[in-house]
Amino acid sequence: MGITQILFWFLTALALGSALMVVLSKNPVYSVLFLIVTFFAISGHYVLLNAQFLAIVNIIVYAGAIMVLFLFVIMLMNLNADMNLQKSKLLKFAGFIAGLCLFLVFVAALKDAAIKKSLVQTNTGEIGLIKNLGNTLFKEYVVPFELSSVLFLSAMVGAVVIGKKE
């Protein structure tokens, strides 16, 4: 087994294990922390695919920003492990059915997918490098890219303007 395989299996085990712990752990703070570990494992996979930009953006946006807000909310609500949340049987059953449906959709979608052909070629995988990504974004997708960046910028300016209004 080469170093890539060892890393791949380690990251896969880490991602799946911590993703399971997100659902299984009783303490919501632990859930959030395990979710952060999951994001790191997925970023590790991106690095293995030579998609460094995607890896670091995943960490900045999800682990660095969104999860901090999650942690904020959960810490302020101060949910504790010993505080038993009331969950009705019906709700649990509905959740189970919904989960199964999602699983079914995934299986159906991936059943006929040509996985063999679309396997990432680790030897020539350079599409994820920032230079190639930038070329693609600014040549083929320049209008949607500019539109979405203007949208983000205006959202941020809007937040400041709302803050300035007393």
Binding site: L33, I60, A63
Partner: peptide
């Protein structure tokens, strides 16, 4: 020498919050 050096710094800085938050909580 990665070609995303500045973004890497930015990512690690954004993780710096966790030490304070987890310790404080």
């Amino acid at each position: 020498d990665i070609n995303i050096g500045i973004l890497y710094i930015f990512g690690v800085v954004s993780l710096g919050v966790y030490g304070i938050m987890i310790g404080g909580w």
